[in-house]
């Protein structure tokens, strides 16, 4: 079984982002970039399936700037076999991205695609579901556990109020939630080995996908700031304030 894992390079999750003064977006100059945390979980799951002998090849793809090579290298150091960089400096929207990934899937013919459930920059939570739609595949989103069952895939999903298990026909799209696994740190020998693994360079034009942006970003602003309140001295004072000042109990 072959698994394709799309990954995204995003602002590191520990960075406190700043909105540009001209309100055109978030300042990405000189900011630490990393692999989207949910994508790391997706890679980890694919590599575990390979280590278990279920998967035979793990291919990682990223659509983004030249620097996304580093993100692909990280995935290769975690254990993926080879990479594909679809180079573009344009900001991708989920639908356009899903169309490019559809092209990659048609070329690579994987049996399963595992993605992160969302990227922590745009917080869209759309790409995996859109790719499933375009391919006509089944989808198991927000997965906390997956297991192959003959020709089908059981996916346990994180849903509001608990967990749901569904059975999917293969090929399938899986999107990873937090509890699917805990991604490994790449070891130094594996980082060195990853440097020798191949990365194919492609362009958006190679997939004849209409990935042009369709949305107009009018502006990006700071959220309203919440003022710090007061420090109370005792529980007694706290309850008094909640009852008589805030009126919430």
């Amino acid at each position: 079984m072959k698994i394709l894992v799309p990954v995204k390079r995003v602002v590191d999750y520990n960075v406190k982002i700043r909105v540009k003064p001209d309100q055109t977006g978030v300042d990405l100059a000189n900011v630490k970039m990393s692999m989207n945390p949910f994508c790391e979980i997706a890679i980890e799951e694919a590599v575990r399936l390979q280590e278990a002998g279920t998967a035979t090849e793990v291919v990682v793809v990223s659509v983004g700037p030249t620097q996304a090579q580093e993100t692909i290298r990280t995935a290769l150091a975690m254990g993926a076999d080879r990479g594909i960089l679809v180079q573009t400096d344009d900001e991708m929207e989920p639908l356009g991205l899903a169309k490019i990934l559809k092209g990659v899937v048609e070329e690579e013919k994987p049996d399963m695609v595992i993605l992160g459930k969302q990227a922590i920059d745009g917080d869209n939570n759309q790409t995996g579901q859109m790719l499933a739609a375009l391919l006509g595949w089944s989808q198991g989103t927000f997965a906390s556990e997956i297991s192959l069952d003959g020709d089908s895939l059981n996916v346990t999903r994180e849903i509001d109020g608990g967990l749901q298990t569904i059975k999917l026909a293969m090929p399938a799209i899986v999107t990873a939630d937090l509890r699917l696994n805990e991604p490994r740190y790449a070891s130094l020998p594996n980082i060195m080995k990853a440097k020798k693994k191949p990365i194919d360079e492609k362009t958006v034009a190679d997939y004849s996908a209409d990935a042009a942006p369709r949305l107009e970003i009018v502006k990006v602003t700071e959220p309203p700031v919440r003022e710090a309140g007061i420090v109370v001295e005792s529980v007694n004072e706290l309850v008094d304030k909640l009852k008589n000042e805030a009126g919430v109990i």
């Binding site: 982002i17 909105v19 917080d123 970003i217 990006v220 700071e222």
Partner: peptide
Amino acid sequence: PIYAGNAIQTVRVS
């Protein structure tokens, strides 16, 4: 909200 609510995006669809 984008970036976990650390920025607010105004977006127009045509």
